[in-house]
């Protein structure tokens, strides 16, 4: 059984039909990437999974349990963590408080502590700046905070929305390394990226989206070879 499964999902913003029948699966331990142009529906897919957007048709399953229709904060406690587009850290809360918010729905004090240590091991910069407010961090640090905060929910599936956006190339490398490390530790990841080359290089499988539909899906290595992907997303002619 896939850990995460979407079946023929249709989502709307008001009258705008954002997702037109999305079906996808993520297996335990995989990195799956969603690539596509702006407005293709990548972020909408993540929002539908995390419950910020409720699908009008179709179902979302987490390990066989239907989760669509549940409020977002319940879905989080069931094991879906999300680092949202644009990072959206709490800029007036300290780094520490941001991370505490990630553990908001958890009661296991020991587990929270060890996860906090884990996050600080992954992102030593955050530990240095733990008492600074989120707004004073640089873009890369904010991205680390957003990912760390999502990790604090102890997710079974981690949704990452454009983690490389707006970052210097050096930092992009670091972030992708950390994603790979996380995955090695056993975290299942659904990654949305515009940087398709990077995303495909670390993913097991990928889905290509265009205007609310999935137009192509395959092993990441095969997608890298595909004519369509090369032309449209990898900038090759």
């Amino acid at each position: 059984m896939p850990i995460l499964e979407l079946k023929d999902v249709h989502s709307y913003y008001g009258h705008i039909h954002a997702l037109k029948g999305i079906s996808l699966t993520v297996e335990q331990g995989e990195i799956v990437t969603l690539i596509g142009a702006n407005g293709a529906g990548k972020t909408s897919t993540l929002r539908t999974i995390s419950g910020l957007l409720h699908p009008r048709e179709g179902q979302v399953f987490l390990e066989g349990e239907q989760i669509n229709g549940l409020p977002a904060h319940i879905i989080v406690s069931k094991g879906i963590g999300q680092s949202p587009e644009g990072r959206q850290i709490f800029s007036r809360l300290s780094v520490m408080e941001n991370l505490e918010m990630g553990a908001y729905s958890r009661k296991d004090k020991e587990g929270i502590k060890s996860d906090l240590d884990h996050v600080f091991r992954l992102f030593p910069r955050l530990k240095e700046r733990r008492s600074q407010t989120g707004g004073t961090l640089s873009g890369g640090e904010q991205q680390m905070l957003a990912m760390g905060r999502a990790l604090m929910t102890r997710p079974r599936v981690l949704l990452l929305d454009e983690p490389s956006m707006g970052l210097a190339p050096v930092l992009v490398e670091t972030i992708f390394e950390i994603i790979r490390d996380l995955n090695k530790e056993g975290v299942t990841i659904l990654l949305v990226e515009q940087n398709a080359a990077k995303a495909l290089s670390i993913a097991n499988r990928g889905y290509v989206m265009e205007t609310g539909r999935i137009v192509l899906s395959d092993e990441a290595s095969k997608l890298q070879e595909s004519e369509l992907v090369r032309k449209a997303y990898l900038g090759e002619d």
């Binding site: 995390s50 419950g51 910020l52 409020p71 977002a72 904060h73 989080v76 406690s77 963590g81 999300q82 949202p84 959206q88 850290i89 709490f90 918010m101 990630g102 908001y104 729905s105 958890r106 905060r149 999502a150 929910t153």
Partner: peptide, 9 residues
């Protein structure tokens, strides 16, 4: 939205 993603009701 971010708060909801942290599991805050």
């Amino acid at each position: 939205e971010s708060a909801a993603l942290m599991g805050i009701n």
